[in-house]
Write a protein that binds this DNA or RNA. Structure first.
Lengths: 112, 112
DNA sequence: TTATATACATAATTTTGTTAGGTATATAAA
DNA sequence: TTTATATACCTAACAAAATTATGTATATAA
Protein backbone atom coordinates (compact mmCIF):
# COMPACT_ATOMS: atom_id res chain seq x y z
CA UNK A 1 0.00 0.00 0.00
CA UNK A 2 1.36 3.39 -0.95
CA UNK A 3 0.34 6.47 0.97
CA UNK A 4 0.20 10.20 1.21
CA UNK A 5 2.63 12.09 3.45
CA UNK A 6 0.03 14.84 3.75
CA UNK A 7 -2.19 12.39 5.56
CA UNK A 8 -0.29 13.00 8.77
CA UNK A 9 -2.51 14.17 11.58
CA UNK A 10 -5.79 13.47 9.83
CA UNK A 11 -6.00 9.70 10.15
CA UNK A 12 -7.79 9.69 13.49
CA UNK A 13 -10.33 12.20 12.22
CA UNK A 14 -10.97 10.13 9.10
CA UNK A 15 -11.53 6.96 11.13
CA UNK A 16 -13.87 8.68 13.57
CA UNK A 17 -15.88 10.27 10.76
CA UNK A 18 -16.25 6.97 8.91
CA UNK A 19 -17.55 5.36 12.09
CA UNK A 20 -19.96 8.21 12.64
CA UNK A 21 -21.45 7.53 9.23
CA UNK A 22 -21.31 3.76 9.30
CA UNK A 23 -21.76 2.67 12.95
CA UNK A 24 -19.71 -0.51 12.62
CA UNK A 25 -16.65 -1.14 10.51
CA UNK A 26 -13.63 -3.43 10.65
CA UNK A 27 -10.09 -2.43 9.76
CA UNK A 28 -9.85 -3.86 6.30
CA UNK A 29 -13.23 -2.39 5.46
CA UNK A 30 -11.94 1.04 6.43
CA UNK A 31 -8.98 0.74 4.06
CA UNK A 32 -11.34 -0.21 1.23
CA UNK A 33 -13.82 2.55 1.99
CA UNK A 34 -11.08 5.18 2.05
CA UNK A 35 -9.68 3.84 -1.21
CA UNK A 36 -13.14 3.90 -2.80
CA UNK A 37 -14.14 7.37 -1.63
CA UNK A 38 -10.86 8.94 -2.78
CA UNK A 39 -10.82 7.14 -6.11
CA UNK A 40 -7.73 5.22 -5.09
CA UNK A 41 -5.93 8.42 -4.11
CA UNK A 42 -5.60 7.57 -0.44
CA UNK A 43 -4.42 4.08 0.48
CA UNK A 44 -4.10 3.53 4.20
CA UNK A 45 -1.13 1.46 5.24
CA UNK A 46 -1.85 -1.20 7.80
CA UNK A 47 1.12 -0.04 9.85
CA UNK A 48 -0.65 3.28 10.31
CA UNK A 49 -4.24 2.07 10.51
CA UNK A 50 -4.08 -0.66 13.14
CA UNK A 51 -2.00 1.26 15.68
CA UNK A 52 -4.37 4.23 15.18
CA UNK A 53 -7.41 2.03 15.84
CA UNK A 54 -5.75 0.56 18.94
CA UNK A 55 -4.95 4.01 20.24
CA UNK A 56 -8.49 5.27 19.71
CA UNK A 57 -9.76 2.23 21.58
CA UNK A 58 -7.25 2.73 24.40
CA UNK A 59 -8.38 6.36 24.61
CA UNK A 60 -11.97 5.22 25.06
CA UNK A 61 -13.24 6.67 21.78
CA UNK A 62 -13.87 3.32 20.12
CA UNK A 63 -15.06 -0.08 21.35
CA UNK A 64 -14.74 -3.42 19.60
CA UNK A 65 -16.28 -6.82 19.09
CA UNK A 66 -15.20 -9.66 16.84
CA UNK A 67 -17.12 -11.74 14.39
CA UNK A 68 -16.11 -14.73 12.29
CA UNK A 69 -17.03 -14.64 8.62
CA UNK A 70 -15.87 -17.40 6.25
CA UNK A 71 -13.51 -18.71 8.91
CA UNK A 72 -11.79 -15.35 9.07
CA UNK A 73 -11.96 -13.13 12.14
CA UNK A 74 -13.13 -9.57 11.73
CA UNK A 75 -12.63 -7.04 14.48
CA UNK A 76 -15.40 -4.48 14.35
CA UNK A 77 -15.10 -0.98 15.76
CA UNK A 78 -17.82 1.42 16.78
CA UNK A 79 -17.86 4.83 18.44
CA UNK A 80 -18.30 5.06 22.19
CA UNK A 81 -20.38 7.90 23.59
CA UNK A 82 -17.18 9.84 24.19
CA UNK A 83 -16.04 9.02 20.68
CA UNK A 84 -19.28 10.45 19.36
CA UNK A 85 -18.54 13.78 20.98
CA UNK A 86 -14.95 13.72 19.84
CA UNK A 87 -15.93 13.35 16.17
CA UNK A 88 -17.75 16.65 16.26
CA UNK A 89 -14.82 18.54 17.70
CA UNK A 90 -12.25 16.81 15.49
CA UNK A 91 -14.36 17.62 12.43
CA UNK A 92 -14.57 21.30 13.33
CA UNK A 93 -10.83 21.37 13.78
CA UNK A 94 -10.29 19.70 10.42
CA UNK A 95 -12.65 22.04 8.62
CA UNK A 96 -10.97 25.06 10.15
CA UNK A 97 -7.59 23.66 9.22
CA UNK A 98 -8.68 23.15 5.61
CA UNK A 99 -9.92 26.74 5.42
CA UNK A 100 -6.66 28.08 6.82
CA UNK A 101 -4.61 25.94 4.51
CA UNK A 102 -6.61 27.15 1.53
CA UNK A 103 -6.15 30.72 2.66
CA UNK A 104 -2.41 30.17 2.78
CA UNK A 105 -2.14 28.38 -0.53
CA UNK A 106 -4.36 30.77 -2.48
CA UNK A 107 -2.55 33.89 -1.34
CA UNK A 108 -2.31 36.62 -3.92
CA UNK A 109 0.92 38.62 -4.18
CA UNK A 110 0.96 41.48 -1.72
CA UNK A 111 0.37 44.70 -3.60
CA UNK A 112 2.31 47.35 -1.82
CA UNK B 1 4.11 29.56 19.87
CA UNK B 2 1.29 27.05 19.87
CA UNK B 3 0.58 24.98 16.80
CA UNK B 4 -1.80 22.83 14.88
CA UNK B 5 -1.15 19.07 14.73
CA UNK B 6 -2.96 18.96 11.39
CA UNK B 7 -0.22 21.14 9.95
CA UNK B 8 2.00 18.12 9.56
CA UNK B 9 3.21 17.58 6.06
CA UNK B 10 2.08 20.90 4.65
CA UNK B 11 4.75 23.22 6.00
CA UNK B 12 7.08 22.95 3.02
CA UNK B 13 4.23 23.65 0.63
CA UNK B 14 3.18 26.70 2.62
CA UNK B 15 6.70 28.10 2.63
CA UNK B 16 7.16 27.54 -1.09
CA UNK B 17 3.82 29.13 -1.91
CA UNK B 18 4.55 32.20 0.22
CA UNK B 19 7.84 32.63 -1.60
CA UNK B 20 6.15 32.24 -4.95
CA UNK B 21 3.88 35.14 -4.07
CA UNK B 22 6.43 37.31 -2.32
CA UNK B 23 9.81 36.68 -3.94
CA UNK B 24 11.87 37.38 -0.82
CA UNK B 25 11.00 36.66 2.77
CA UNK B 26 12.93 36.00 5.97
CA UNK B 27 11.97 33.46 8.61
CA UNK B 28 10.36 35.70 11.13
CA UNK B 29 8.42 37.41 8.38
CA UNK B 30 7.02 34.03 7.32
CA UNK B 31 5.75 33.30 10.82
CA UNK B 32 4.02 36.70 10.91
CA UNK B 33 2.51 36.32 7.45
CA UNK B 34 1.12 32.88 8.28
CA UNK B 35 -0.30 34.22 11.52
CA UNK B 36 -1.88 37.16 9.72
CA UNK B 37 -3.39 35.19 6.84
CA UNK B 38 -4.93 32.58 9.13
CA UNK B 39 -6.25 35.12 11.62
CA UNK B 40 -3.90 33.80 14.26
CA UNK B 41 -5.09 30.24 13.69
CA UNK B 42 -1.77 28.91 12.51
CA UNK B 43 1.32 29.81 14.50
CA UNK B 44 4.52 28.32 13.14
CA UNK B 45 6.98 27.15 15.75
CA UNK B 46 10.57 28.11 15.13
CA UNK B 47 11.64 24.54 15.78
CA UNK B 48 9.60 23.52 12.76
CA UNK B 49 10.18 26.53 10.53
CA UNK B 50 13.97 26.93 10.59
CA UNK B 51 14.82 23.27 9.98
CA UNK B 52 12.25 23.26 7.16
CA UNK B 53 13.88 26.30 5.56
CA UNK B 54 17.33 24.73 5.91
CA UNK B 55 16.13 21.55 4.31
CA UNK B 56 14.52 23.35 1.38
CA UNK B 57 17.79 25.20 0.88
CA UNK B 58 19.83 21.99 1.13
CA UNK B 59 17.50 20.45 -1.45
CA UNK B 60 18.21 23.32 -3.82
CA UNK B 61 14.68 24.72 -3.80
CA UNK B 62 15.58 27.90 -1.94
CA UNK B 63 18.59 30.21 -1.90
CA UNK B 64 19.51 32.78 0.71
CA UNK B 65 21.20 36.07 1.36
CA UNK B 66 21.51 38.06 4.54
CA UNK B 67 20.83 41.67 5.26
CA UNK B 68 21.35 43.73 8.39
CA UNK B 69 18.47 45.91 9.48
CA UNK B 70 18.63 47.86 12.75
CA UNK B 71 21.73 45.92 13.77
CA UNK B 72 19.80 42.66 13.47
CA UNK B 73 20.59 40.07 10.82
CA UNK B 74 17.82 38.91 8.55
CA UNK B 75 18.28 35.83 6.42
CA UNK B 76 16.22 36.17 3.29
CA UNK B 77 15.00 33.23 1.24
CA UNK B 78 13.89 33.14 -2.37
CA UNK B 79 12.91 30.36 -4.75
CA UNK B 80 15.52 28.87 -7.04
CA UNK B 81 14.48 27.90 -10.56
CA UNK B 82 14.01 24.34 -9.35
CA UNK B 83 12.03 25.64 -6.40
CA UNK B 84 9.76 27.50 -8.78
CA UNK B 85 8.87 24.26 -10.53
CA UNK B 86 8.44 22.42 -7.27
CA UNK B 87 5.83 24.90 -6.00
CA UNK B 88 3.52 24.01 -8.85
CA UNK B 89 3.69 20.30 -8.22
CA UNK B 90 3.47 20.64 -4.44
CA UNK B 91 0.41 22.87 -4.85
CA UNK B 92 -1.36 20.34 -7.06
CA UNK B 93 -0.64 17.64 -4.53
CA UNK B 94 -1.98 19.78 -1.71
CA UNK B 95 -5.14 20.67 -3.62
CA UNK B 96 -5.77 17.04 -4.46
CA UNK B 97 -5.18 16.09 -0.85
CA UNK B 98 -7.67 18.72 0.34
CA UNK B 99 -10.29 17.41 -2.08
CA UNK B 100 -9.75 13.85 -0.92
CA UNK B 101 -9.88 14.85 2.70
CA UNK B 102 -13.11 16.74 2.13
CA UNK B 103 -14.58 13.75 0.33
CA UNK B 104 -13.72 11.59 3.32
CA UNK B 105 -14.99 14.01 5.94
CA UNK B 106 -18.24 14.89 4.17
CA UNK B 107 -19.26 11.31 3.58
CA UNK B 108 -22.97 10.69 3.78
CA UNK B 109 -24.15 7.46 5.46
CA UNK B 110 -24.20 4.60 3.01
CA UNK B 111 -27.77 3.88 2.00
CA UNK B 112 -28.04 0.19 1.31
C1' DT C 1 15.15 47.28 34.52
C1' DT C 2 11.93 44.45 32.86
C1' DA C 3 8.96 42.62 29.40
C1' DT C 4 7.96 42.20 24.71
C1' DA C 5 9.11 42.11 19.92
C1' DT C 6 12.36 41.05 16.52
C1' DA C 7 15.58 37.51 14.57
C1' DC C 8 18.32 33.61 14.25
C1' DA C 9 19.44 28.67 15.72
C1' DT C 10 19.76 23.78 17.67
C1' DA C 11 18.99 19.61 20.77
C1' DA C 12 15.99 16.31 23.02
C1' DT C 13 11.84 14.23 22.66
C1' DT C 14 7.36 12.80 20.83
C1' DT C 15 4.11 11.78 17.39
C1' DT C 16 2.91 9.58 13.50
C1' DG C 17 3.85 7.90 9.68
C1' DT C 18 6.46 4.14 6.18
C1' DT C 19 8.53 -0.17 5.26
C1' DA C 20 8.88 -4.66 6.03
C1' DG C 21 7.78 -8.68 7.98
C1' DG C 22 4.67 -12.32 10.10
C1' DT C 23 0.27 -15.39 10.46
C1' DA C 24 -3.80 -17.35 8.31
C1' DT C 25 -7.94 -18.50 5.18
C1' DA C 26 -10.52 -18.36 0.59
C1' DT C 27 -10.55 -18.26 -4.18
C1' DA C 28 -9.24 -17.70 -8.94
C1' DA C 29 -5.71 -18.59 -12.38
C1' DA C 30 -1.94 -21.10 -14.51
C1' DT D 1 -1.55 -28.27 -7.82
C1' DT D 2 0.79 -24.55 -6.77
C1' DT D 3 0.80 -19.84 -7.28
C1' DA D 4 -1.08 -15.30 -7.02
C1' DT D 5 -4.46 -12.31 -5.21
C1' DA D 6 -7.80 -10.90 -1.92
C1' DT D 7 -9.25 -10.92 2.66
C1' DA D 8 -7.98 -10.02 7.61
C1' DC D 9 -5.34 -9.35 11.55
C1' DC D 10 -0.84 -7.78 13.82
C1' DT D 11 3.91 -5.80 15.29
C1' DA D 12 8.79 -4.16 14.99
C1' DA D 13 12.41 -1.25 13.03
C1' DC D 14 13.00 2.89 11.09
C1' DA D 15 12.26 7.70 9.31
C1' DA D 16 10.07 12.11 8.93
C1' DA D 17 8.39 15.95 10.87
C1' DA D 18 6.62 18.00 14.28
C1' DT D 19 6.73 20.00 19.64
C1' DT D 20 9.08 21.63 23.54
C1' DA D 21 12.72 23.73 25.52
C1' DT D 22 16.83 26.31 25.21
C1' DG D 23 20.22 29.59 23.76
C1' DT D 24 22.05 34.04 21.68
C1' DA D 25 21.35 38.89 20.61
C1' DT D 26 19.32 43.66 19.61
C1' DA D 27 15.53 47.25 19.86
C1' DT D 28 11.87 49.34 22.08
C1' DA D 29 8.07 50.19 25.13
C1' DA D 30 6.45 50.00 29.94
Amino acid sequence: MSTNPLLKGTLQTIILKLLEDNAEMYGYEITQKVKEVTGGGVMLTEGALYPALHKLEADGLLETFTQVVDNRVRKYYRLTEEGGKEVTSKLSEAELFIEQLQALLNLKPTVK
